[in-house]
Design a protein around this nucleic acid. Structure first.
Lengths: 143, 143
DNA sequence: CTTATTAGTTTACAACTGTAGTCACAATAA
DNA sequence: TTATTGTGACTACAGTTGTAAACTAATAAG
C-alpha cells in the first residue's frame, strides 16, 4: 500500500496511521495503549512501527522534551486515495468499473456520499468512452 | 492483496495472475515470454512465481504430459473484489465514500460502467444512513 | 540525590517477497 | 540409443515485514 508520498506503508503500519489520523496527534503511550486494545500488540511492536513510520516520514516527532508528540505528516484522505490508486493500477483497466461496483455495494455510504458520487458520475458520463481497453498484456486483447 | 479464496497474492504474483486471466490458459513458455516482455523478468522468476501460485492454489497445472497448461483457479472478478474489499477494510469506514469518489475520478469508465454504477447508487440511496460512523478506534469518535 | 518509572533506541529473528541460478528429467532430434 | 534441449523442481539469497525483548536515557517520586 502506498501513502500520499508514494512510500510503501505496510499493513501493520497502516493500523498505526489510522490511530494517529483519528487522534490527530498522540504520545507514544496513547498509541501503545490504543494498539494494544485494537490489535493486542505489545508496547515494543507499536514502538517499532512508529520508528519505521518516522523513518518513512509518514509521521513526525514534535515537542522538544520527553513525552514527545507524534503527528501524521501525510494526510489520511490523500493516503487512502494513493493506496486505492495503487490497487487499481494493478488491475485490468477493463475491470475497474465492476470492481468499483462491488465496493459500492459492500460498503456503507451516507446520503451525502451517494449524492457526491452521483454528481461525479453525471459529469463523467458526458465524456465517457463506449469501451475501455484491456491493458493487461502488450497488444490489444479482451480479458 | 487477497485473492478470491482469501489467500494473499503478492504484487509480483498478481502480475502473473493478470497474464493468466487474460490468456485464459497458458503454457509456462507463453507466460515466461509475456512476463519477460511486460516486466523484464528472467524465466526463473516467472517459474518461481508460478510455483508459488500453484502452492497457493490460485493456479492449477493441467494436462498429463510435459508442456503443461496453467489455468487460473480463482476468478479475476472475484479476486479483484476481494482485493478491493481487503483494502477498504483497512480504511476508516467514514472515508470510503470520498476514496471511491477519487477512484472514479481517476479511472476511465465506459458508458455501461457508469450506467451500472448509477443504477446501484440509486438503489442504495433508498436505504442510505445520514452518517457513517468512524470505526478506527474503540469507542465513538470522528476521524 | 537516589530510586523507580516511563519513554525512546538497539537488537533480534523467523516468515515472506522479489529475483534468479542450477539441477534433473522428459521429449525430441539425430 | 544417445545427445540435445525445453520444462519443471530445487536451491539461494538479500531485503522487507510482523512481532518483540533488552538496553539506555530522561523524568518523577520520595
Amino acid at each position: 500500500m502506498k501513502d500520499a508520498k508514494n512510500v510503501t506503508i505496510t499493513d501493520s503500519e497502516w493500523m498505526v496511521m489510522r490511530a494517529i489520523w483519528t487522534m490527530g496527534h498522540a504520545t507514544s503511550r496513547e498509541l501503545i495503549d490504543a494498539m494494544n486494545e485494537l490489535e493486542g500488540w505489545s508496547a515494543s511492536t507499536t514502538k517499532t512501527l512508529l520508528r519505521r513510520l518516522i523513518q518513512k516520514q509518514a509521521v513526525a516527532q514534535h515537542g522538544g522534551s520527553r513525552p514527545f508528540t507524534y503527528k501524521p505528516v501525510v494526510g489520511e484522505k490523500e493516503s487512502m486515495a494513493a493506496a486505492a490508486d495503487d490497487l487499481f493500477d494493478h488491475m485490468c483497466a477493463m475491470r475497474a468499473g465492476s470492481t468499483i461496483a462491488g465496493v459500492i455495494q459492500s460498503r456503507e455510504l451516507s446520503r451525502a456520499d451517494i449524492a457526491n458520487l452521483q454528481a461525479i458520475l453525471a459529469e463523467k458520463a458526458k465524456t465517457a468512452p463506449e469501451e475501455v481497453q484491456c491493458n493487461c498484456l502488450p497488444g490489444d486483447q479482451t480479458c
